[in-house]
């Protein structure tokens, strides 16, 4: 269940629902993701999401102070977002709602373009700060699920993608069981 922290009386944008266009625009534009709370445990949701998004061509930079300097899926783990020495598009937060504020401040500091909080994570104070600094914000969503919705892959599992389209899905070069997300036009 989602805990609503410090919800402001007036928000810059409505974070209860996102348009497909908004999500697609983010996933089509930004291909470098810092994943805060990345796990080396192969059955954790963050591990699944990291592996999946890497297979879709995203560069994932894992962030986890407990694993700093080690590797997850061949990627060097950083202790903190501010330690990453390269441009980052999306900071994906796999931590609790309380922790999201400090991580969002780091995301603003390094010039990230999007703060993305995972399913169950919502911090409206952090969202307002990020939006004031010109970042886009997504809360209580999973990029793997959103990619699956907009590529049609999630539909193979009988999941309601909440999208309909008369356009032929795009196959990814890797094979028939890999698809690309739609454009955001």
């Amino acid at each position: 269940m989602v805990r609503h922290l410090n919800r402001p009386t007036h928000s810059v944008m409505n974070h209860d629902a996102y348009s497909d266009r908004y999500i697609l625009d983010i996933l089509n534009t930004h291909k470098i993701i810092a994943m805060v709370g990345a796990s080396a445990n192969k059955v954790r949701p963050s591990y699944f999401a990291m592996k999946y998004l890497m297979a879709k061509g995203y560069r994932i930079i894992p962030v986890n102070p407990g694993l700093a300097g080690q590797n997850i899926l061949g990627q060097t783990v950083y202790s903190r977002v501010t330690e990453i020495g390269e441009p980052v598009g999306i900071v994906d937060i796999f931590r609790n709602s309380e922790a999201a504020l400090a991580i969002t401040k780091d995301a603003i500091t390094i010039g990230a373009k999007v703060v993305w909080m995972q399913l169950g994570v919502r911090n409206d104070e952090a969202a307002a700060l990020a939006e004031q600094a010109g970042l886009k914000v997504v809360m209580n969503r999973c990029p793997k699920i959103e990619y699956g919705r907009h590529s049609g892959e999630i539909s193979w599992a009988g999941v309601n993608s909440r999208t309909i389209s008369s356009v032929r899905p795009k196959l990814a070069p890797r094979g028939y069981q890999h698809r690309l997300i739609r454009s955001s036009d």
Binding site: F48, G148, E153, I154, A157, G175, Q177, H178
Partner: peptide, 18 residues
């Protein structure tokens, strides 16, 4: 399966597919 990794990922429920 598209490749060996894909097969393993499907059986582990890491990815969507048939």
């Amino acid at each position: 399966f598209d490749d060996v990794d894909h097969a393993a990922a499907l059986f582990n429920l890491e990815t969507f597919g048939n």
